[in-house]
Amino acid sequence: MTSQALDLNEEYRDIYQELVNVAMGRAADLLARLLDTYIILPVPKVNLLARTELAMTLAALDKNDRVSAVCQGFSGDRISGEALLLLTDATFPDLAHLLGSESTGSRGNELELLMDTANVLIGACLKGFAEQIDVEFAQSLPEVLGQHRKVDGLFDQPAIPWEQALAIEVTYRLENKESTFELLLLFTSESIEILNNKINFLLEE
């Protein structure tokens, strides 16, 4: 890990933001079609993140909010990371309502909603991001981190001693609803240098 790789200047931050802006737009388009509603898009937040700040970074969420979360690893072209999707408990009735699905109370059904949403948002966002920098990501099977847990308790200290990661945070909101979807793309510090090279290539084109 070189210190140079961990430098994130304004120009690069801006580019990451724009790449994700396009990628998240495509993901939102698919989810909007699935739910038949409009999804309000934010300006994505790009940061270098220390491991201790992971839970803290989810700024849109209250510490006491109960959330359900899915994470999914991805890798390709020596770039790797994880995508995280967090849904607050308030989201499920909205989702179930929009999808016209019954028996909202059951856990199995919630899990189905959670996984379907994760498939769309994570899958489309990663695909959109990868296409722009001309790479292809393979996704691991998604994993449920927890259901109805407090945000604080969600991230057990990981066994892999990572120090820093590039974090891109997108908070989707459903129009006229309380529901929020937190999508977090985390890239390993080793990936940053490779990503920056890909971006330099985009700048020269």
Binding site: R33, M115, D116, N119
Partner: peptide, 17 residues
Amino acid sequence: KQTCVLKIQAFVTWEQR
């Protein structure tokens, strides 16, 4: 149908079903 329309992979875990 979703896989076709969305043109992305759909994952199903044992936890889900």
